[in-house]
Amino acid sequence: MIIYDILRQRRDIILKQWKNIALNQYSFGDFKIHKENNNRFGNPVAYTISSGLETILDEIIAETHTVKLDDALEEIVKIKSLQAEKPSIAVDFLFHLKNILKNDLDDFRQDGGYPGEIEKLHTDIDNLILSAFDIFMKCREKIYDIKSKEIMKRSYRLLERANMVDPAPRRKGDVDDEIGC
């Protein structure tokens, strides 16, 4: 298991690169969010993403897949589902990992490499990518679900039906307009 040995050795460097890319990605245009204040409560986004990446990488290296990994993935994608307009942007942090690993391992690859292990590594990450897509969809659905729930909950509508409310009256000549774009 030579590859995993190398990964264990290079873990800190790989993680640092990955965090930098992922957090830089969490940005607005080309403005970057505060990474300095990485306090769990003071700056929850930076904290959640960076600690989540750490969990994911550690489990990949340890060749395990526990609940912690699923949770970490979900927490990150949850944030991304609100930030990114497209799922492709929301899950691309996992593709970045692939690139980083590829670059990193290339330096250490001896002639011929160790294809079996590389393949396994890539399959593991691919599986995570698929899960990330699922989570993204789940989060988007949740948002719409919440939206519809909120509208239904709005007692105002019920009251209106019960004829108990009467909004500010339309004056004569007013265009009867509807809210909403």
Binding site: E36, N38, N39, R40, F41, G42, Y47, S50, S51, E54
Partner: peptide, 9 residues
């Protein structure tokens, strides 16, 4: 502040 998490600067 609660000091937690991996590397907090």
């Amino acid at each position: 502040e609660l000091r937690e998490g991996p590397k907090i600067t």
